[in-house]
Design a protein around this nucleic acid. Structure first.
Lengths: 340, 340
DNA sequence: CTCTTTTTTGAAAGCACTTTCATAAAAATA
DNA sequence: TATTTTTATGAAAGTGCTTTCAAAAAAGAG
């Protein structure tokens, strides 16, 4: 028989051809030890010949587990997203789970709709990445029924995997201060979430600890857009050319700042130092490499998936926990020591 | 009763509570006209009260259709990907289909694994976006069983949705030539697929038609990496400073070129003109805006989804067709007319 | 107020599997 | 060789729904 997609071929067809019962066929592709090796070989041969692929739909129905988890993100094209999903999948896959991926594009209607789809698909759990409040609100109603893990947002209602945002920002700004910088700008999205709040705290505390006053004019905010960094840096360079260093909320902003700085004819780090956050791939590729706070994206994914799996398997519904993963300052060519 | 996730509640529970048969419950949430409005109201009330969500698993099993299509992409973080998936979903969603999204990250093992998952999940069809050969090879074996549509790659075995790559490149380069440019570089990935081949053809033919000899040194190739544009432009500016215009294979490369040009202290378009391809969001945001070949990404998604749905519904297994979508040159600030 | 016709409802079979429980076959023991 | 124990196999029930078909209820016709 020619190999085909296996669509339409059932366990009955295989059983009939192999001259065994469907129970035996089921046991074969489930690797049950309750089959003699002789029978196993015979059945496997028929399975291969017919190109039989067991229907996960039927399997899910009887096992009452879809072996699928839902993954909700607000923007798939986020550069670090891929690493995190890699981490999530590496864990899930080894346990035979697959991922139903949903990109809400910051759209509430889509989000609600996706969550409904997940419910219908009977996902075994949900991971939400960089959720804003609405996501959690929507999910809160179903919380006690379905394990949920949130990455990079602090909600006490569900398990969270976060990084040490305040410390990361503190370390970055402290590094600049210790390098002699005193006029340090902070370029950040004009948005309200725990990540932004925490990095802001780090920026302020670093100044505080070193006894350096913060100039509010150096904190530039702009609503999220893909080139916000460019605009914020442009504004800053025009209004406050005395600034010697920029701390960007993330690497995308830092890259935007590069553009503005170069366009103005200035050099990095000679004229101005730049520090980013995230350590996306581009940060090491670009020239000069961005000094940045490295986040363990892959690890975040792994940790979230492991946490979720634990909840799913152990039916553990105890109080939500938060896991904090450390960041690390990676120094590259975009910063220099200021000798007065 | 408190609202909950609906997990665990079955059609039987609803039927019992509403004092009707399960057939009636089924009819209610399937919007069948075979229910009196009185009964419908009564049942719907119970459904809402109990928070019942019908299991798509059970529904798929009996309807022999998962109402799901698989979407295979090689890199989720591709900026234009989001628009295309938007287009795909806009069509699919209105027909009640959902999308099982797979990012192969250019990894064959993952790809094979995902395809197997799709087979198990009994997807009703597959859309592959920017596939390389291996994808098609893997799918060819199952082709006659499962509708497949490929976006942005030419394969005669399956339905394709492509854009006029050669014409797009031709138009872009012709525009530069007509603007007085003679020394036009082409920055492109060192990779072999139909898109690259076609844009190269357009670049060459534009020169040909205008009687301008092509200088092979102006064609810079580099293996794919996120900042290839920067490196290629840097190399070009050093070895061939006489070049007056750059035609970039895509906008990401163009943006990389911007960086190299700025870093060198040159101005766009005063010292050098830049043309991109794709018209990603960043192209209009960046300064100066990139003159680029706009691709109808949303339309590509819509078209592919419609084609697939047609195949699925009509059981139409006639010979594969290719749909060509037009591109359009969008002129922005990155190019200027050269007056000799 | 009957008898048809139409509308609404429910019983039951089926979808492709897993799993339990009973039984048959094989192996081990007496 | 007979008996017990172990291992391998199959029959059947169950998973949550859809859909067909028959029956009951309602509506319309005479």
């Amino acid at each position: 028989m020619a190999q085909n997609s296996g669509q339409g071929i059932t366990i009955y067809d295989v059983a009939k051809k192999a001259n065994v019962s469907i129970s035996t066929v089921s046991r074969v592709f489930n690797n049950s030890p309750l089959v003699s090796s002789k029978t196993r070989k015979k059945v496997q041969k028929v399975i291969d010949e017919m190109g039989f692929v067991p229907s996960s739909i039927a399997r899910s129905l009887v096992s009452a587990s879809s072996k699928t988890i839902g993954l909700i993100v607000s923007d798939i094209t986020n550069p670090f997203f891929a690493d995190t999903i890699d981490g999530i999948e590496s864990v899930l896959h080894s346990e035979g789970f697959s991922v139903f991926l949903c990109d809400t594009r910051y759209n509430r209607e889509r989000e609600a709709n996706y969550i409904n789809q997940m419910l219908e698909k009977r996902v075994d759990g949900i991971i939400i990445f960089s959720a804003d409040i609405s996501g959690i609100e929507l999910l809160t109603g179903i919380k006690n029924e379905l394990p949920i893990v949130s990455i990079q947002s602090a909600f006490k209602e569900v398990d969270c995997v976060n990084t040490t945002d305040e410390e990361g920002a503190y370390e970055a700004v402290d590094f600049l201060i210790k390098s002699g910088h005193r006029k340090i700008a902070f370029l950040v999205y004009d948005y309200d979430n725990s990540t932004i709040t925490n990095r802001m705290k780090g920026y302020l505390r670093a100044h505080d600890d070193e006894g350096i006053p913060v100039n509010d004019d150096y904190i530039i905010k702009m609503k999220f857009n893909p080139n916000a960094g460019y605009y914020m840096a442009k504004e800053l360079l025009e209004s406050h050319p005395e600034v010697t260093a920029i701390f960007a909320y993330n690497d995308m902003i830092a890259i935007g700042a590069y553009m503005a700085i170069y366009q103005k004819g200035l050099k990095i780090p000679d004229d101005i130092s730049v520090v980013g956050y995230d350590d996306i791939e581009m940060a090491s590729i670009i020239s000069p490499g961005i000094t940045t706070v490295s986040q363990p994206f892959y690890e975040m994914g792994r940790t979230a998936a492991e946490l979720l799996l634990k909840r799913i398997k152990e039916e553990d519904r105890s109080i939500p926990q938060t896991i904090l993963l450390p960041t690390r300052l990676t120094v590259r060519g975009s910063t220099r020591t200021l000798t007065p």
